[in-house]
């Protein structure tokens, strides 16, 4: 019975994968082509309200522990004991048993998104795959797409997720949500690194003179467009608080790639 069920499942799964392939013409497995479009950025740019995003490829799911283990095995520089403190703080891959082993939790977490990784490690992984990290605008644009198979709006899904603590064992990728671009888990599973996360400049107050005059006369919050977009505010506040070497137990990543003309 179990056997039959798993066969049915894998047939279904491969059907889904084949289907996705036929629709998207990806450069590699597991990516989908996101069409060019525009979105309204949460943080206003005084010279443009809508941000245009070119077509790009995006991983449909976040990078998993098992995938990241392959990377570390091929690039020992990124093993837990080898990585230097400039490129990852001490919590780097702390949920793994050792440098090249996830440990007894392997079966439980192999398909869960890898977390406790720094921006540098995520960037190195993407490069190794011949990919890159999505830009902040690409990520936000893809994440703004409405969800499918869900009664809830994107906003409701996020707020429900925010209200719960991060589970010790993260659920597998693909389990949280799916949107109209066929991209999974942009909300509801983990936070994700983006290439230019350090482009979020939210000043604490106008007395600080650390940024130039475009934010000089008010707090960073004055440049927000939708003051009620609590969920987006949380994402931007989080990014604004990050440094590239930081690692946290609910911050992972997915890769993107250029569409070659």
């Amino acid at each position: 019975m179990m056997m039959r069920l798993s066969v049915v499942c894998s047939v279904l799964l491969s059907f889904v994968i084949l289907n996705a392939k036929a629709n998207s013409n990806p450069p590699a497995n597991g990516m989908v082509k996101i069409p060019a479009g525009k979105y309204t950025s949460f943080l206003a740019d005084k010279t443009a309200k809508q941000v245009a995003v070119k077509s790009f490829y995006l991983d449909v799911k976040a990078v998993t522990n098992a995938e990241f283990l392959e990377f570390v095995k091929s690039n020992p520089r990124w093993a837990r004991s080898k990585v230097t403190a400039l490129y990852a703080e001490s919590g780097y891959l702390k949920h793994w048993a050792s440098d090249f082993s996830i440990g007894s939790n392997y079966e439980k977490v192999k398909n869960s998104p890898v977390t406790n990784i720094s921006w540098y490690a995520a960037t190195a992984y993407a490069k190794w795959k011949g990919k890159r990290l999505p830009s902040l605008n690409e990520w936000e644009y893809a994440a703004n797409a409405p969800l499918v198979n869900s009664q809830r709006t994107v906003e409701q899904t996020i707020l429900k997720w925010y209200s719960k603590p991060t589970p010790i064992i993260l659920p597998p990728t693909g389990s949280a949500s799916k949107n109209k671009f066929s991209v999974f888990d942009m909300h509801g599973l983990i936070w994700e690194w983006v290439y230019d996360f350090n482009s979020v400049i939210m000043n604490d107050d106008s007395r600080s003179n650390s940024v130039n005059q475009s934010l000089f006369c008010a707090t960073g919050a004055a440049s927000t467009i939708d003051k009620e977009n609590y969920a987006a505010f949380m994402r931007f506040a989080f990014r604004g608080s990050l440094k590239a070497k930081y690692t946290t137990s609910n911050l992972g990543f997915r890769c993107a790639a250029d569409v070659k003309n």
Partner: peptide, 25 residues
């Protein structure tokens, strides 16, 4: 430039007009 900005903890954002908002250090 992006990599160096990460190492130095400098924040910057390109504006639509090609100029930059940035932290100064």
């Amino acid at each position: 430039v992006r990599n160096l900005s990460m190492l130095l903890d400098v924040k910057y954002k390109k504006q639509a007009n090609g100029d930059f908002t940035h932290s100064s250090s």
